[in-house]
Design a protein around this nucleic acid. Structure first.
Lengths: 139, 139
DNA sequence: TTAGGTGCAAAACCTTTGCCATCCC
DNA sequence: GGGATGGCAAAGGTTTTGCACCTAA
């Protein structure tokens, strides 16, 4: 969700952004905290988390593995894609055929051993098409 | 990791499996717990988690959003793929071109509003090619 | 001036574990 | 019998929040 609130510039926020700009390491919140702490020794983790959330809400930062998302389980089956509704949280399977060659291509290109990949689409399901970001259900 | 230990059949384990077989809802651990509790009122969450782990280790169940994985942050950028090394935990960007048409195809096929997708490859990076699952580094 | 930010500490949450009794093979 | 499991409760680790005090604009 993109907020319209005024975004202030603070040394803490700038430090976090500065760190993210200068790394390619996909840091965890804790790693960001430790890094920023070198310059702002008394910054708190709460501030780091709050800032990350603000930056995410404003489309400046993104998260790998949706933050705070609960793990979800399913019986193992043929690789398939998932769709997660950003409004109601529901997760469902998609029948789009999976590109099985992708793993090999990545493997050849990088020299890494690729065991597989997982793709998740985000958006709004049929029940949540309408405007207001109401939570209809959590399934 | 596929273990070779004997897999016993217990009513708790069967209940969990039975529930997973009869749902398409990608339940959370808590949802599984609540469901199974209807038949086995005094089952504990620890049992649910332990069983899920055993089933995962034996390739019977899989998880969406790697369990227990810390959130990782990065500056928002052009959609790209990630690779996560299962040995050292490192995450890195891949330069494989992203299939931008995928979102549209999914949207047309499902009628859902698709805002994007996230793909993560798993495997072993160059530093971790060798046999023993040693943890080389966590970055 | 004042809404947005920050520190600190406590709370909330999800998941893992230790211990010991119990059950399946 | 003996190793695999289960129940319970405590511990662990990450993320969120309440509150009172700042500070950028």
């Amino acid at each position: 969700m993109i907020t319209n609130k005024a975004l202030r510039e603070t040394k803490q926020r700038n430090a976090i952004l500065g760190f993210l700009r200068n790394t390619r390491s996909h840091p965890t919140a804790d790693q960001i905290y430790e890094a920023v702490r070198e310059n702002i020794p008394n910054i708190s983790k709460g501030t780091v988390y709050r800032n990350l959330q603000v930056l995410i809400d404003n489309g400046i930062v993104s998260v790998l593995d949706i933050r705070g998302t609960l793990s979800r389980y399913e019986l193992k089956q043929e690789t398939h894609y998932h769709f997660r509704c950003e409004a109601c949280g529901r997760v469902c399977d998609l029948d789009e055929p999976v590109d099985r060659g992708l793993d090999d291509r990545i493997s050849k290109r990088t020299g890494f051993i690729v065991s597989g990949h997982q793709t998740e689409f985000r958006g709004r399901c049929a029940d949540c098409h309408r405007p207001s970001p109401k939570i209809h259900k959590e399934s």
